[in-house]
Design a protein around this nucleic acid. Structure first.
Lengths: 114, 114
DNA sequence: TTATTGGTCAACCACTCAGTTGATTATCAA
DNA sequence: TTGATAATCAACTGAGTGGTTGACCAATAA
């Protein structure tokens, strides 16, 4: 059942845009090791904390990242759901993708066999 | 084996950026029905042929689309490989994603059972 | 040859983006 | 209270975006 999440397809704009930046993808990677604060994340980068804060805002608005407050700190976590949205979108092309690669593999196998 | 394609990760910037636009995602969908020329694709949209041509350029530079010439026409096709690159990137998060959703499902099942 | 058509290139516009610096808010510690 | 810290907000800059129109090139058709 693909429909439900895809109806929120306006979000795909936000999600893919969020993922189009290497720094933001890197932030997601670090978060996949466990939750972190803004400051902890920013410490690993050359750019200002402000820049990281803005990247995290983009990730949050794309629902790729969830935040909760703890005192004056923001604690960030990956949100598995939005990754699911990308995964679902990609599945639209999964069959196409697999068929063609299989066909290519077959062709190459045949070719090397002959 | 994830390494090979991910080394070409500079491309992920291009790929995700290409996917961040609804018109471009729509173009990919139409191409998944089979190859088409620039003009055929453009006919389905309100914007100028020039705008579509530029969108197709973005998709081509991200390797999501392949072109071949036939007379004065450009014939466009999906390129299954780049979809594979996205898929591989996503698989970095697949386990995380699945674990968390499973945990959530378990929690909800437990909750409704009690 | 001369038109016509398919498509790209070039220049421009309003808008957005990633980054900066500096001010601001909210929480913790003296 | 006062001061330091975590993080966001505000305003700005240079670069890039999606869109336009008009010129241009290549291939078909007259």
């Amino acid at each position: 059942m693909l429909a439900p999440m895809l109806e929120a397809a306006a979000n795909l704009d936000l999600v893919f845009h969020a993922l189009s930046d290497g720094t933001r993808r890197s932030l997601l990677r670090r978060l996949s090791d466990g939750e972190k604060t803004v400051g902890e994340l920013a410490a690993d980068y050359d750019v200002s904390l402000n820049a990281i804060s803005k990247h995290l805002k983009v990730l949050t608005e794309a629902d790729l990242v969830i935040r909760r407050k703890s005192g004056r700190q923001q604690i960030l976590n990956l949100n598995p759901q939005s990754f699911g949205a990308v995964r679902e979108w990609l599945q639209l092309y999964e069959s196409f993708w697999r068929e063609r690669l299989d066909a290519l593999a077959d062709y190459l196998a045949e070719d090397s066999g002959a």
